[in-house]
Write a protein that binds this DNA or RNA. Structure first.
Lengths: 118, 118
DNA sequence: CTATAGGGATAGGGTTTT
DNA sequence: TAAAACCCTATCCCTATA
């Protein structure tokens, strides 16, 4: 299989945050060209950076409803369980291994094709 | 309390299959917009189509062989699942993609395949 | 033509119901 | 326990705009 989805690693996310701190949010292409981050983010496009940054900020705003109360629809059977609604912790990364795939060739072929005339 | 779980009819399933044959798997919104199927599938969302297509293919695949060894019901806390980063080479599931049959005269954006191997 | 912002769609895991 | 239907949302795509 190819790459159905490229999940962001913790290291990539850190690099993105550092890049925003250094160059500012919105300067996605600048961040990508910075040799300090280009190695880590070489698989990402400027659009990817923009999307990830949006997602980070949505999630941290508490608007992501990550821990939305799972409605307990008591139908007929009541299977009452000691289901404690503890807080969900998302940033509990254990030892994460990164760098799983080695892309051959250095040519970035992303950026898609915007062969769309206007 | 939510939605009473609407089962898929044979007609809806046929329309979904025809839609995939015509537009390609993954083009859920396109299928829904097609007047050929929109009447039959008007109660379904694009996500519904995606989910149903997944169910169809799971069922027709070699079922039962790939069973996740679910642990005993832990009612404690949910630890982060063993998100393995390495490549899984045991799962050689057959791909469910169906080629989208060259559309005539249409302005199809891409070939229906995601050559997104970054 | 290149880049960014924003809306929208898809993929895949999770949850609930049967 | 499994399977089907449905939910959640990170990731990716498309278009407008500068």
């Amino acid at each position: 299989m190819g790459a159905p989805k490229q999940k962001w690693t913790a290291e990539e996310e850190s690099a993105l945050k550092a890049g925003v701190a250094k160059h500012g949010a919105g300067k996605w292409s600048t961040i990508l060209r910075d040799p300090e981050f280009s190695t880590i983010l070489k698989l990402r496009s400027n659009v990817d950076l923009k999307d990830k940054w949006r997602n980070i900020n949505v999630a941290s705003s508490g608007l992501g409803s990550r821990q939305r109360v799972r409605l307990a629809p008591r139908r007929n059977q009541l299977v009452s369980q000691p289901k404690d609604n503890s807080v969900d912790l998302t940033a509990v990364d254990s030892d994460m291994d990164i760098e799983p795939l080695a892309v051959s060739g250095g040519t970035l072929q992303n950026a898609g094709f915007k062969t769309k005339f206007q």
